[in-house]
């Protein structure tokens, strides 16, 4: 049974767990089996933090990632714990300002100013959702409508508008980055 492994990596407080949870919700809405786990440092803010998803057609055996197919990096601190786990052929998105030294290897890397775009929309805290939009649009791992619905349902009321704007901005970034690739799947389930 082939699994799809996805990680949002960065620094504690960047909303990585929320991104993971929103994408989890989108997969569940698509009828897929998913498990979302997290690893983090004892500090609530500033240490590394990973939100991981394993997606499967059947029940997920082992819920932790070991060969990452999709990686979103929002802070340099998230690079080291993940670099050795990136699957050949993976899709890696990294923040162009906060990840000055992204990982290198046999995979597709896109750098985009997720955090700066979020600041332009009103809050750096929405960088996680901008990146989520770009990931979904670029990879097609789930539909744009599905993830939009998941964000609408899974965001605290006060931030719904901001997060929907952030998600749309993420889609646009994907279209700007690689119009030809948009919708292509790196790993077929």
């Amino acid at each position: 049974m082939s699994n799809m492994e996805i990680r949002f990596g960065g620094s504690g407080g960047q909303g990585l767990i929320l991104s993971g949870r929103l994408l989890f919700q989108a997969f569940v809405m698509d009828g897929k089996h998913a498990a979302q786990s997290q690893s983090y440092e004892p500090t609530s803010r500033g240490g590394f933090c990973n939100a991981d998803l394993v997606v499967s057609e059947g029940e997920v055996d082992y819920p932790l990632v070991s060969a990452i197919d999709y990686l979103v990096l929002l802070d340099q601190i998230g690079v080291a714990p993940s670099a050795a786990m990136i699957n050949p052929g993976a899709l890696v998105l990294s923040d162009s300002r906060l990840v000055p030294a992204p990982p290198t290897g046999e995979f597709t890397l896109h750098q985009a100013p997720f955090t700066d775009e979020a600041i332009a929309l009103g809050s750096h805290r929405a960088a996680n959702v901008v990146a989520l939009g770009t990931l979904v649009a670029l990879s097609g791992i789930c539909g744009r409508d599905t993830v939009t619905e998941a964000v609408r349902a899974g965001t605290p009321k006060a931030f719904v508008d901001l997060n929907l704007d952030a998600l749309r901005r993420g889609f646009e970034i994907a279209d700007e980055l690689a119009p030809a690739e948009a919708g292509a799947k790196v790993v077929q389930l």
Partner: peptide, 9 residues
């Protein structure tokens, strides 16, 4: 800790 912080249906 893994299962305690795991999100599953």
């Amino acid at each position: 800790q893994v299962v305690s912080h795991l999100l599953e249906p």
